[in-house]
Simulated assay, not measured.
Amino acid sequence: MSRLWLTGYRSYEMGIFKDNDPKLTVIKYALKLSITQAIEEGVDWVLTGGQLGTEQWAIEVVNELKEDYDQLRLGVILPFQKFGSQWKEDKQIKLASLIASADFHDQIYHQEYQGPYQLRAYQDFMLEHSDRAFLLYDPDFPGKVDYDYQKILKWQEERPYPLTNLTMDDLQEIATDYEENQKL
């Protein structure tokens, strides 16, 4: 069993506020390529959270890929109970639907948000229960995922833990490739 922790930018950090944003087509295409490559390298579990943006898009992509890869499983892990309860109702409904689509889901803390220690415990859990990480993240363009990125770099100091970053340059290259493929 090989488990991939997948996270990245929040939707608002990428200027994406609607599900029909054209940028989202390219991002999901990039996620699909990256997750497919990870599957072909032996990954059979994708672990992610429920954050708006990369994590939710990854859940949608994994659910699509499960049609072609029977062995693929999805774990949605939340840091605490009632995660996302402060979001607008439509976003809460979408989160509930995505969680329901997972093969496994749980929370690290079975209580509501108490403090940042819960988020650190979440990071520790994800690192301890995964074999590698994939981040939609460019260190030249910091965002909230930088906390995860820095934690992974520290984790790598003590053990082998492969990390793949999909950077803004990578996204631009994939967007160009996607556009060229659409013309064929």
Results as ranks from 00 to 15, higher is better:
F104M: 07
D106R: 09
D106K: 08
D106M: 06
Q107P: 02
I108M: 10
I108P: 06
Y109F: 15
Y109N: 12
Y109W: 14
H110Y: 14
E112F: 02
E112I: 01
Q114I: 06
Q114E: 15
Q114V: 11
G115C: 14
G115K: 14
P116M: 08
P116V: 07
Y117W: 15
Y117S: 13
Q118T: 01
Q118F: 00
L119F: 07
L119R: 05
R120K: 09
A121G: 09
A121S: 14
Y122T: 02
Y122D: 03
Y122M: 09
Y122R: 11
Q123P: 01
D124W: 10
F125L: 04
F125T: 04
F125M: 03
F125W: 15
F125E: 04
F125H: 05
L127T: 00
L127S: 02
E128T: 08
E128Q: 12
E128I: 00
H129K: 09
H129M: 09
H129A: 10
S130R: 03
S130T: 13
D131N: 11
A133R: 04
A133M: 09
A133L: 10
F134C: 06
F134I: 03
L135K: 10
L135T: 00
L136D: 01
L136R: 01
Y137T: 01
Y137S: 03
Y137I: 01
D138Y: 03
D138C: 03
D138P: 00
P139W: 13
P139A: 14
P139L: 15
D140N: 10
F141K: 08
P142H: 09
G143F: 02
K144N: 13
K144D: 12
K144G: 15
